[in-house]
Design a protein around this nucleic acid. Sequence first.
DNA 1: GTTGAAATTTGATTTAAATCAAATTTCAAA
DNA 2: TTTGAAATTTGATTTAAATCAAATTTCAAC
Lengths: 226, 226
Amino acid sequence: MITKFTFNSQYILSELPSAERELLKKVMDDKKYRKNQPIFTEGTLPSGIFYLQSGKVKKYKMDNDGREQIIYIYNAGEFFGYSSVLSENTYGDTTIAIENSVISFITTKDFNEILKDSSSFSRLLLKSLSHEFSVLANLMAVLSQRTVRERIALNLLILHDKYKVDGVSNTYIMLSRSDLANMAGTVIETLARVLHDFKHDQLISTDGRKIQLLNIERLIKIANFY
Amino acid sequence: MITKFTFNSQYILSELPSAERELLKKVMDDKKYRKNQPIFTEGTLPSGIFYLQSGKVKKYKMDNDGREQIIYIYNAGEFFGYSSVLSENTYGDTTIAIENSVISFITTKDFNEILKDSSSFSRLLLKSLSHEFSVLANLMAVLSQRTVRERIALNLLILHDKYKVDGVSNTYIMLSRSDLANMAGTVIETLARVLHDFKHDQLISTDGRKIQLLNIERLIKIANFY
DNA sequence: GTTGAAATTTGATTTAAATCAAATTTCAAA
DNA sequence: TTTGAAATTTGATTTAAATCAAATTTCAAC
């Protein structure tokens, strides 16, 4: 269910034949990004693609009136920025690190060279991109047709999945209210009110900014998805 | 500007090396679809990909409560249904012909065989898919952040482009109010009211269901895009 | 630990858009 | 050409969510 709303480019690296994987790893250039540091900006020409080693990155679009819509939040192990390189266009959105992150960079040249010689790589990219397309279609339908309450419940479930850590039983969503509102396509005040209700109904608990989901079953019901 | 909201897979066929193009054409199986005839349905396994020779096709998602969100309207010359084949998933949406249409079908087997042997084809698909991804991201931001009035103005501009015919000076949008509402993410009554206002302001004129744009400049301003 | 700016929450009010209801128009089949 | 069901428009009302405003909390730098 949640896979309808999460990218899965993680498998690209693992399913790539080891020769190509090594090639790719060799041309990766790692760089540390601090929280709130931009990675690339909408409208600029792509210089390469990115691979998130650790941390979290948000991809968003800003409109004329300064309203921000978060398109996606990337988690460790995901590639990003590659669709602009492939479509030979300027970046269609802006990405910034929302946690301290380590990000590998692969230049357009290196990327294209590996791609040219590797049908497995292009096949995996096609597969990944196709899935990402369907994720956006799903998000589109949700944003336009669901109530704020439903959208917030759904986004909490999506985030729970992203903030889950292997071997750790409790999951804490650590994201600003403003980012959460911009994911759900609402404003901070409305978000605060809905979270208040969810807390009152014991669906979630909060500790400062941290959110923990207490009743996933019921949140799924509220999100109105099966 | 409007290219931010329109797919462009038309170039796949024209840019494909002639050998591959002929191969593709050879395995295409043409079929006529009547208005309102379904092509494929969300949740079913993809059996192949489609190429719209003539007519128009809508792609949409229906939610639990029967609310429909139109993801895209395809025009002659576009490929569709290929992302589900590539992601090896069931179709993520439903498509039906909204006009009498002629649609070519290519089986998954034929498609994969050509794809396997043609790096140009996979390269073109990657390019096209990447662009389509950015279109959905743009639509997502519009649906969640813009007013109904802005969304309707934008969709009229998008449709104007789709219904334009070479060498014919007047363009008439011929789409049901319900489809137009479901593109803009609103209800029929609200759509009717906004169209009424646009007519009053001489931005559009209508003749039965047909809509003609009279003042594109001002509609662009209302849509709030540059 | 203290401090203060930024982030979040809570309260009051407005507003855009949905809903419910009914009248009118369209257009394809007879 | 007529006919009637479906589609569209118009009217009245409700409602979900945004906005405006102010109080409170958080948390990082000192």
